[in-house]
Amino acid sequence: MIEFTINGIDVSVEPGTTLLEAAQFLGVPIPTLCHMEGLTPYGACRLCVVEVGDPPNSRMVTSCTYPAEEGLKVRTASVRVLRARKMIVELLLASCPQSKTIQDIAAAMEVRQQRFRQENEDCILCGRCVRMCSEQMMAGAIGFTGRGQERSIGTPFDVSSEVCRLCGGCMYVCPVCELRCTYNEPEKAICGGCANLAPPCVEKPQYDDMMCYMQPCVACEIKKD
């Protein structure tokens, strides 16, 4: 067992436990965005930063990827941490202002104004969908392409992937696009994509028991009939 402190409270956890898991076990709130239970920690959004060590030599680390260490002193709500988190939220909000998830996080942190130019991006590159696709859906159809400013999420060669089962898991976990299939209410449809797609579960019986996040979906309506 590893003994360390979070905000002055003594904790003892199994080796390999991350700071975020320990904090959540104690009920210490740490906001997260790219973190998701069941997916490997990624440390992309930096929202879960905490301060470790004694000032002035303390460091800022992402709690979702940092394993607990013996004798570590962790502070999850110091002035420095809160200031860093607010800045991150402001930047996230500027890039994807339409996202309900980010708006909620911003509201909870009392970020009321936006100092940065609004970008209206449709992706914050949190990598949730990529990990969902490869780890939970065992497909590996989408991934990161390019580098720096050109970094984006896509399929190889920008053509529809043959390993994609159209399960919709990537849209389900996305904190930004929130592209739920709204075929039943076409007037509210965001993309209307599934009306034009041919979900494989209709034609291929082996996809019958496959986990699907496309609910409600045109394929289920077809099957019912």
């Binding site: 497909a139 590996g140 989408i142 990161f144 392409t145 580098r147 190889p156």
Partner: peptide
């Protein structure tokens, strides 16, 4: 070539998107 990358993916047992990601990452 795209066809070569598909062979690499098949042969190394990695997903094509992994290989495509590496190929697009490095200039």
């Amino acid at each position: 070539p795209e066809s070569a990358l598909r062979v690499v993916a098949q042969r190394t047992g990695r997903s094509l998107v992994d290989i495509y990601g590496v190929a697009t990452f490095y200039s």
